[in-house]
Amino acid sequence: MSNLLACLLLAMAPDAAAIVKRADRAVLGETTTYTVRMTVQRPGKRDRVVEMRGFKKGDEQGLVRYTTPPKERGTAYLRSGENTWLYLPSAAKVVRVGAKQNFGGGDFSNGDIFRLSLIKDYDPTLLGEEAMSGEACFKLELRAKNRSVAYDRVLYWVRTDGSFFPVRAEYYTISGKRLKWLSLGEVGKLGGRLRPTVLAMENALEAGAKTELRFLAIEDEAKLDDRLFTPSALEKGE
């Protein structure tokens, strides 16, 4: 009977793609500007704290500029489609970099930062419902559509209460090894609506290693010109 009920509830639930689409926009909107503080924690080391101003347009274009500390001020990353560039203010130079590397010396990859959307890169399957971090959640499995994305498989927990706030994501390699896991929490009102405001990525390769992104300000539906997401704009600075 209980199995039948579970099947019935699953059948009534939104389909997996719709859940992931809603979850993709839970933190940041389609076109957004934001201010975020990144804290990189390493066991036995002093925390590294960096504040950034970010611009995002769709899933393909993103720009992040470091604003503090002063020694890192002006450093900027630009992502446009499959391309990533880094601006080094000390050399006044734009350098093209690989896309898969980690971002800012922390546990997020460039892809994690610039492509918070999962639906474009992964095929989702709804596995069922499961409580996670005290919340009733849909549990989804996401399989990479192609080998160019950072992770082969993602397990994803999204709240069932209609908010579609993601709660946790676990990232796996092609060999099935868990690489990292992301916790999303501290739901609060930012930019006129409720959303998770803190994202914490932990690394399976190093116990105690953690990188936290704390959003300080968000403005959804910002008007951003495509020309903002070009190496020319990166070089021009803010």
């Binding site: 499959e82 990533t84 093209r96 970099v97 690989g98 896309a99 898969k100 590397q101 160019s148």
Partner: peptide, 12 residues
Amino acid sequence: LGRSLGGSVSVH
């Protein structure tokens, strides 16, 4: 000319 090779390498 500049291009990323994927991963963490770029060439010019």
